[in-house]
């Protein structure tokens, strides 16, 4: 049987895995705020230490974590170059034609790259790697539930997410089957120019749409037969409880934020605006 790699969730036991999904969403947001609060070299050093601590606490293999940065290399280089050339300071370290590079430019380039890396690692470690998609969906639903007062369809949104997650593997498997069937009827997906390739998709997309609609229809009927009437009056099997560890994590994160603010005020070395 082919296993379809799905999502980034990495199933191991770790202190971070055990945290409540809602708390992890809040932690991730706070962590993002912290990365933007960082101004000077001390802060960024603290940030790097924090990121390493998170990797250690998540029990994830370093390689897996670092791989998540790879798609962002281009953006990082781009940002670094921009900061390098566009930040002006007092005395240029290097000058050639109209290009002047200042010490400040180097600092802000490095800071930006660190910020992006830590940002991606942080959200990954708190959310996608350590939280199942379903727990994440429930967490978002729970955090957004106050919005129900202003008629935001929070439950419906979460239900859509759940169903989408449930059917992604089913539909990707089906796409493979339809592709094979049409290949057997002589379609070649690798041949010809752009238009020809686009046309070759029609025999895939139409059956896939038809089948998706049929599935949606049948699923709706099955859900009605299981007494689904929307979010009203619905209970949940697992009501998440906050544990001491969740509060500890929250306190640590707030303390970390306060620490960053304190380090900013020390004003050591170059400080990004």
């Amino acid at each position: 049987m082919k296993t379809i790699a799905f999502g980034q969730y990495y199933p191991v036991q770790s202190p971070i895995h055990r945290l409540d999904a809602r708390i992890k969403i809040i932690l991730a947001i706070l962590f993002i705020v912290c990365t933007f609060l960082c101004k000077n070299i001390l802060c960024f050093a603290a940030l790097i230490v924090a990121a390493l601590f998170l990797i250690f606490m998540s029990r994830l293999p370093l390689g897996t974590v670092l791989r998540s940065i790879r798609p962002l290399i281009f953006i990082m280089i781009f940002t670094a170059v921009l900061n390098l050339f566009w930040t002006t300071g007092e005395t240029p370290l290097f000058e050639w034609w109209r290009i002047r590079i200042y010490e400040e430019g180097i600092y802000s380039a490095v800071f930006m790259v660190v910020r992006i890396i830590v940002l991606v690692l942080g959200t990954g470690l708190f959310l996608t790697y350590t939280t199942t998609p379903i727990a994440l969906t429930d967490g978002i639903e729970s955090l957004l539930s106050p919005l129900r007062v202003i008629r935001v369809p929070v439950h419906e949104f979460a239900m859509m997410m759940t169903i989408a997650l449930r059917f992604i593997p089913t539909l990707s498997e089906e796409t493979g089957k339809i592709m094979n069937a049409q290949k057997a009827r002589g379609v070649d997906f690798s041949e010809g120019g752009l238009i020809r390739r686009a046309k070759a998709l029609v025999p895939i997309l139409i059956p896939l749409f038809v089948s998706s609609f049929r599935r949606a229809d049948e699923l709706a009927m099955a859900m009605e037969c299981r007494c689904y009437r929307g979010g009203k009056g619905r209970t949940r099997m697992t009501v998440p409880h906050l544990h001491a560890r969740d509060f500890v994590a929250l306190v640590v994160m707030v303390a970390f934020g306060a620490g960053i603010l304190y380090l900013n005020r020390l004003g050591i070395g170059y400080s990004v605006p």
Binding site: I178, N180, A181, R185, P207, S211
Partner: peptide, 12 residues
């Protein structure tokens, strides 16, 4: 020639 399982899902 190959006819897959439930081939009616390939009609388009």
């Amino acid at each position: 020639g190959l006819v897959m399982q439930y081939p009616e899902y390939q009609l388009f």
